[in-house]
């Protein structure tokens, strides 16, 4: 664990109960990964629901998925991938000690996240307009197969939960932008940005699966 010569080096961001910055950084990272694990299982329930109902009503799922616009979904996928790249580069930039580069890249990530949400907004409002709503509010009649509302229940639950995560991510990125501009970070200490990055990549990961599940194969 701790190496002895770290005792003398005690920067102000090092908490008292850690014996070295290394120990603190590793702890944060492990904590973050465990948090991501809980996120995976949180989404997991919905993945399970998707799998069960997809197996029960395969025709419905195939018919219903055609009502989603894959060009919009694909655009959103590309937008999120781009935001992941900028996020990863923001961390790299801070590793190199460039505050300006980090700020630009964080702002780009934020902007791409906003684009994602705007596209999602148009998709949602179109669905609302058609009456392709979850569960008992479903009124659309153009989809053949049993229980098409279940497809939309799962669709709205999963993309909605994902959307909430995107919004939460934007809030955290905003906080990181603020802290970066206040010179809280340096090439020695950038753990919070790194953690934000991990979270943001997970949001991207989830979407990488949601996209084919709903837009491509139903």
């Amino acid at each position: 664990m701790a190496t002895s010569h770290t005792e003398t080096h005690h920067p102000n961001w090092l908490q008292h109960h850690f014996s070295s910055p290394f120990q603190q950084g590793e702890s944060s990272k492990l904590g973050m990964w465990l948090f991501l694990l809980t996120e995976v299982l949180f989404f997991g329930g919905l993945f399970c629901a998707y799998a069960v109902f997809n197996a029960w009503y395969p025709e419905t799922f195939i018919n219903a998925h055609k009502s989603l616009s894959w060009p919009l979904g694909a655009t959103n996928t590309i937008v999120l991938i781009a935001s992941s790249v900028t996020m990863a580069l923001a961390i790299r930039s801070m590793q190199l000690g460039s505050k300006k580069g980090t700020l630009i890249l964080l702002w780009s990530t934020m902007a791409l996240a906003a684009v994602f949400l705007v596209i999602k907004y148009f998709e949602y409002s179109h669905k609302f307009h058609l009456g392709q709503l979850p569960g008992e509010y479903y009124t659309y009649e153009g989809i053949a197969g049993t229980n098409p509302h279940i497809f939309f229940s799962v669709y709205f639950m999963m993309t909605g939960l994902h959307g909430i995560h995107v919004i939460a991510g934007m809030i955290v990125i905003g906080w990181m932008i603020y802290r970066t501009s206040q010179d809280h970070f340096s090439s020695d200490y950038y753990t919070p940005i790194e953690m934000t990055g991990l979270y943001w990549h997970l949001v991207d990961l989830v979407w990488i699966f949601l996209f084919p599940m709903f837009y491509l194969i139903g």
């Binding site: 080096h9 070295s20 910055p21 790249v85 020695d188 790194e194």
Partner: peptide, 19 residues
Amino acid sequence: SNGQSHHHILPLSVYINVG
């Protein structure tokens, strides 16, 4: 002694290529 840079910084090309 700093805890962060114990892993090397990846070259820019890695991120671009993966993207």
